[in-house]
Simulated scan of single mutants.
Amino acid sequence: MPQPEHCVGRDLDLDDQIRGVAMALRHWFDVRDLESLQREVGILPAGGASRPYDKHRRVLTVTALPPQIVRLKADAPMATLHYMQDVYDDGTLRADPWRWWFAWVAIELIARVGPDRDGSKTRRFVAEDPSIESVRVSAPRWLAANPLRLRLIERRLAELVDRASDPDASPGRTIQERVRGNLAGNLARTLVDAMADEAAGIAAAITLRLDERARRG
Score class of each variant (00 low, 15 high):
Q3R: 12
Q3T: 11
L12Y: 01
L12I: 00
D15C: 03
I18Y: 04
M23Q: 15
A24Y: 11
A24G: 15
L25G: 05
V31Q: 10
V31P: 02
L34R: 15
L37V: 10
L37H: 06
L37Q: 08
Q38E: 13
R39W: 07
G47M: 08
D54C: 10
D54K: 12
D54F: 12
K55S: 10
T63G: 13
T63L: 05
P67K: 02
L72Y: 08
K73Y: 00
P77C: 09
H82N: 08
H82P: 05
V87Y: 05
D90L: 03
G91T: 02
R94G: 11
W98P: 14
W101S: 13
W104Y: 09
L109D: 13
I110S: 11
G114M: 07
D118G: 04
D118S: 06
R123L: 13
R124W: 07
A127M: 01
P130K: 01
S131K: 03
E133P: 01
V137T: 07
P140H: 02
A145K: 06
A145M: 12
L150G: 15
R151T: 07
L152K: 12
E154L: 11
R156S: 15
L160R: 04
R163G: 09
R163S: 12
A164P: 01
P167S: 01
A169C: 04
E177V: 04
A184Q: 11
A184G: 09
A184I: 07
N186M: 01
R189H: 03
T190H: 00
V192Y: 06
D193I: 02
A196P: 02
A200R: 03
A200I: 06
R213Q: 09
R213P: 02
A214W: 02
R216Q: 10
